[in-house]
Design a protein around this nucleic acid. Structure first.
Length: 286
DNA sequence: CACGTCACCTGCGTGC
DNA sequence: TGCACGCAGGTGACGT
């Protein structure tokens, strides 16, 4: 899916902060059309549609990879998973037939001819309408970009884990927001092998990893995220990957061919030279 | 606790 | 051109 930077980009677009895009903030939801019922995680579709009607969008934010919309009395959550997207459109002029996109799953009809559209080719994405958003967000780990997360604290979090870095960093209850791309890119930047056992990092390595994660995420946000495959959202971070999707191509730092292995069912890309120097990684098969 | 496997879905690129 | 296959930004439910 979109990872933290792509979700952040979408949130900023929805707030109207980029270009001349319009925003759902301050608009009342007049009606909702659910085109794929399983996109609605909770409550049951009839209750969802009925309860949301008449509520006004007050605030749009992000928590991990979730889009959080504060409404008058409930909170609307979106998780885009692999292929979801969320954007606003204007109603067509009178007389024209409303075009429903091939992958539109939920359409929210707002005031002033605005429509909020949740589209999702692979149908993995989910939408929640909750009284207390913590019911869904409660198990998330800390925000990697939050200043409150110190290098010391991050080192302590790692010290308690005997797991490999790659699956650990992608575990949303450990840290909220990293996915497959940004994890591979951050590990490359930190010069750490993806199979390194977390508890074996020293304080300096932990600090370097947190710094690399933050720099990678910030660059992603600054480039408006990555647009890969047919899911295009305007970002261009995909043109600046060091390892992701570059199997067999040469490392931009040292020239060694980038390797791809599978870890936890996910393609994992790394430079065996730049990221091969941790003590325990040498013992691991590659 | 930590890992492996499958399931959920559609679409695109590749190779025969 | 058709078609099988592998791959894809994610997560949750299992089993060992």
């Amino acid at each position: 899916m979109p990872e933290l930077p792509e979700v952040e980009t979408i949130v900023r677009l929805l707030r109207g902060g980029i270009g001349d895009s319009s925003t759902p903030i301050g608009k009342k939801i007049l009606r909702t059309s659910v085109l794929w019922e399983r996109s609605i995680a909770a409550p049951p579709v009839p209750e969802f549609v009925q309860r949301i009607q008449g509520q006004t969008v007050q605030k749009i934010s992000r928590r991990g990879k979730y889009i959080v919309m504060r409404l008058s009395s409930d909170t609307l959550l979106f998780h885009l998973r692999m292929s979801g997207d969320l954007h606003v459109e204007f109603e067509k002029l009178h007389g024209e037939k409303e075009a429903i996109g091939k992958h539109d799953r939920v359409i929210f009809i707002l005031q002033n001819g605005l429509r909020l559209i949740f589209e999702d080719a692979r149908k993995f994405g989910r939408v929640w309408l909750l009284t207390d958003p913590q019911d869904e967000l409660g198990d998330l780990g800390p925000e990697p970009l939050a200043e409150e997360l110190s290098a010391d604290q991050f080192h302590r979090m790692l010290k308690d884990c005997r797991r490999q870095l790659k699956p650990l960093l992608m575990d949303q209850s450990f840290l909220a927001g990293l996915g497959n791309i940004y994890t591979d890119e951050a590990l490359f930047k930190a010069k750490l092998h993806p199979l390194t056992i977390a508890s074996e990092l020293n304080a300096d390595q932990a600090a370097a990893l947190l710094k690399a994660i933050r720099e990678t995420l910030l660059e992603g946000i600054q480039r408006n995220g990555a647009s890969i495959d047919w899911v295009y959202r305007g970002g261009d971070f995909q043109n600046h990957f060091f390892v992701y999707g570059r199997k067999g191509e040469t490392c931009l730092i040292c020239g060694t061919p980038i390797e791809r292995i599978v870890v936890g069912q996910r393609g994992t890309h790394f430079c065996p030279n730049c990221q091969g120097h941790t003590a325990n990684a040498k013992k691991l098969p590659t």
